[in-house]
Amino acid sequence: MSLAPPNFPDLKTGQVESYLHPSVSVPEGLNNNVLVTTVDRLYNWSRRSSMWPLLFGLACCAIEMIATASSRFDLSRFGMEVMRPSPRQSDLMIVSGTVTKKMVPAIVRIYNQMAEPRYVIAMGACATGGGPFKEGYNVVSGIDKYVPVDVYIPGCPPTPEALMFGLMKMHQKVDTQSVTTADWYKREGSAFVPVPQLGPDIFDPRQADLIRAETMSGEAVEADTGGGRAEGGVPGGLRNLGEKAKARIAQAKERAAARLAG
């Protein structure tokens, strides 16, 4: 049994990885084009310095968001002091708190009503991935199941510092965008997210076919209702894993091994 000591300096930096938005790459022939890059810088500077968040709180994290906006941490230093109650006037939706199935249709509608360019921050463990309430029957395991998320902030709840760090990450992302490739100036316009509906359980219209295929196959789709206790020594949680999940697990293992070896 031997384990190589891990490489400490890389360990912490590895968590915050550099990110390049796919739409940012400078188009062919425009490399070193002074005009475009200068305009981009101005354009991004102005957008990032006056990014107005939507006044929108869901749960505990909203209280920390208010604390961040109040005098001790002072969000106005980031040009964010005006929290707009109307989605039409805001650029950034901070999903602060547990997203429930009953609330999702409203959130998606609000998201659709926001004008482009629009950004979404998932603040806290719940909005990121369901958090401690993930297993609950009325809890959505992460708002990214329904609307695209730009920055995830873990923590329960994130402290004001963590939120501000997330906002700075958001600024980083804005800085990598270019006016020439921005989706929201294209003719097709921005994507409209179909509003999920409340049925026997919430369902996403985009997945109607998938759901039908399962429900009509003759057996009710229930993740694991066979009494719950595992048989034959197989842990209860791992019986129904799909191929995708197994691949992911293998990937994670490889990564851990590579890190330890490196």
């Binding site: 199935k101 993930k134 297993e135 959505v140 049925g199 009710a220 799909g242």
Partner: peptide, 22 residues
């Protein structure tokens, strides 16, 4: 490590009755 999402074909915390058509 396994995400709960991977247990359900549509990756969400939902279940539907048999023979239900959206």
């Amino acid at each position: 490590f396994a995400r709960s999402e991977d247990k359900v074909p549509w990756g969400k915390n939902t279940r539907y009755p048999a023979d239900w058509d959206p």
